[in-house]
Amino acid sequence: MRFHPGRSFLALVSALTITSACSSGPTLTYELHHELGVHFEAAGTEGAFVAKRIGTDDIPIVYNAVRAREPLPPAETFRPLATLVLLETETVGSLDEPLTWSGEGAYVQDWHRTHSLRTALTDDAEWVYQQTADEMGRDPYEVWINRLGYGNTNVRGGQGSFWMDGTLLIDMFQQTEFMALLASESQPFDRSAVRDIRNELATIAGDGWTMTYQEGRVPGSGTEDRVGWLVGIVEVGDVEWAIAMNMDVDWDRTIDPDARVNLTTTLLEAVGITSNG
């Protein structure tokens, strides 16, 4: 077991260090925390959690490793990368360039107005990403997704939004890799664009820590429960963590809309990342 500075002893004593081989991916070593299951049970759901200290060789903290390695559509968690690609390719000139809805597609009524990439991020306007993807085509996405090794790198199947329809898939370890890239000084995108996008993501703060995050909801069929994503970067002093959490969410949205955020902050404290103990 490796000691993580800033984490309490109590958060470490129940952890197991596991090395796991999987036919669908590389061998991984991680710190397994079975005890986190009580927090998912208390929230009335099932899920998984991964946290990796950025810029170190520390092994990731994991709950439910089998689920964490399951590839899923990134859904709305793809938006930070999509925004960077749209800016990098100059498909959209800036975060504030006005984008006019074409009138095609059935979307939430509040989205049917002029947006920008900035407001699309903050107001959850899906049409912006669908329409700009149709205009730009998939080739630029394919180039950047392959360059970054994002998920399974597939953008070619399906007829709709490839980040929603099961064409592009990503697991939780890969999600933390991309979050770490956003926090890195060595990432390949324009640094000012990355900073601007991070500033537009949702943020919650506690005693000595800040979490910047993006949520997503994997589409389901009929009344099947969906999977809700939360991915982000947690800053604790001068230490940064890349995190990913997913959980089952009701198809009719009866689960508390803040459940993912509340559960994630509980998990962060339970493993000693944000606790002062």
Rank of each mutant, 00 (worst) to 15 (best):
V227S: 11
E35F: 03
D207G: 01
I54Y: 12
T100H: 15
P71D: 08
A68K: 01
A242Q: 07
E215V: 03
D123W: 09
V231G: 08
P98E: 02
F162W: 14
P74L: 02
Q174L: 04
F173H: 05
R147C: 06
S184W: 13
P60S: 00
I233L: 13
N146M: 07
E97D: 11
Q109L: 06
E215R: 10
G157P: 02
E142I: 01
F173S: 06
I204G: 00
L95I: 05
G166Y: 11
H4Q: 11
S161G: 08
T266Q: 14
E35A: 08
W241Y: 15
H39G: 04
D124L: 08
A244H: 13
T210H: 06
E224L: 07
E215F: 01
T210S: 14
N154P: 00
A205P: 00
G160C: 03
L201T: 04
G208H: 12
L201D: 03
Y150S: 06
A51Q: 10
E31H: 13
D110A: 15
G216E: 08
E235A: 13
G158K: 02
I204P: 00
T176V: 10
M164R: 06
W111P: 01
G25H: 07
D238Q: 14
F173A: 08
D190T: 08
L117P: 03
I59W: 08
T89V: 05
M164K: 06
V271D: 05
D57R: 12
T223D: 12
G157N: 10
I243V: 15
A43V: 06
N262D: 10
L32W: 09
I273L: 11
Y150E: 01
S14T: 09
F9Q: 11
S102R: 07
G6M: 04
M179C: 14
G105N: 06
A259K: 05
G149Q: 08
L32F: 12
P74I: 02
S161R: 10
T100E: 10
L148R: 06
